[in-house]
């Protein structure tokens, strides 16, 4: 059970003979396991990130090739019911706060599970669980989703997807527009879901900080194709590749990098937490600069 892409291409215009079409996703092979994955998808604007994730829960149907989504085959002429797929693969869109519409936040969270055929009681129970998981208090749940703050709205929207209990959770730029505190909280939450419930999580992000902090695996997209798919740490070690695809280091690595360059320190710049970086600096400087 997994999500498997086999030679998948997608174009927003319809394919016609003798006509050159621009593919948003071109000839992609990809395998994503259902459990314990934490994947970050990075790439420029227009490289096909959003298209790729929309293919994963059958919001878009591939123009060529086929996708096996948790046991259901999706191909250009698919006739299968798509709703069960969307329950299994939950997709949180960019700025999800705009999809809220109910009278109270709780009702909005219940909306998804109810649509997927849960009974009213079960849906309510799942919704309350999801709300508590994302850290929404009961008084917020009773308020109108238009009367709460932007960060809280986003939590409501994410809870709305979580309440349907998806096997795989996909988030399109979840940290954009959040303050540092909100961002940290959200990442902590995603880590928790990943570690405790072993659900696979896929996030699209531009933020290398987020990548280095949470992602175990990185997929780099460049002009509709996958140019890197593998371990996060290995990606940051390949300086040449990062330069070629205009990818940035996380802030901490930038700092370590300039320390090495400017001060001529013999340090390993590949540190992913402040603690590790401190240890590394201490190793080199410890005796002389105490």
């Amino acid at each position: 059970m997994a999500i498997n892409f086999r030679k998948v291409s997608y174009s927003y215009s319809s394919l016609k003979k003798n006509k050159q079409v621009k593919f948003a996703i071109s000839d992609v092979n990809l395998e994503i396991s259902e459990k314990d994955e934490f994947i970050a998808i990075v790439g420029h604007t227009g490289s096909g990130k959003s298209t790729l994730v929309q293919l994963m829960n059958a919001l878009l149907i591939p123009s060529l090739g086929e996708i096996d989504i948790l046991g259901t085959m999706i191909h250009p002429r698919v006739k299968a019911k798509l709703k069960p797929i969307r329950k299994k693969v939950g997709l949180v869109f960019q700025f999800p706060e705009y999809q809220l519409f109910e009278e109270t936040s709780l009702k909005d969270i219940v909306f998804g599970p109810k649509n997927f055929g849960m009974s009213a009681e079960e849906a309510m129970q799942k919704a309350t669980e999801a709300a508590h998981l994302v850290g929404l208090s009961d008084d917020i749940l009773e308020k109108s989703p238009f009367a709460i703050s932007g960060g809280q709205m986003r939590k409501v929207a994410i809870a709305g997807i979580l309440a349907s209990n998806p096997d795989v959770l996909i988030l399109d730029e979840p940290t954009v527009g959040l303050d540092p505190f909100g961002k940290g909280e959200l990442l902590k939450l995603l880590k928790k879901i990943n570690e405790q419930e072993h659900k696979s999580i896929i996030i699209i992000t531009h933020d290398m900080e987020v990548v280095s902090e949470v992602a175990k695996r990185v997929i780099v997209l460049d002009s509709a194709t996958i140019v890197y798919d593998g371990d996060t740490k290995a990606l940051f070690k390949n300086e040449e590749f990062l330069m070629k695809h205009n990818l940035d280091y996380p802030e901490l690595m930038k700092l370590m990098h300039s320390l090495r360059e400017k001060l001529g320190l013999d340090i390993d710049i590949h540190q992913y937490s402040v603690e590790e970086a401190y240890q590394e600096l201490y190793r080199v400087l410890g005796d002389t600069h105490e």
Binding site: L59, F111, G112, N115
Partner: peptide
């Protein structure tokens, strides 16, 4: 464009 986005977002929440 916005309507398309909302349609997709709600489709992800099981709206058919």
């Amino acid at each position: 464009n916005e309507a398309e986005k909302i349609l997709k977002a709600q489709a992800s929440r099981g709206v058919d």
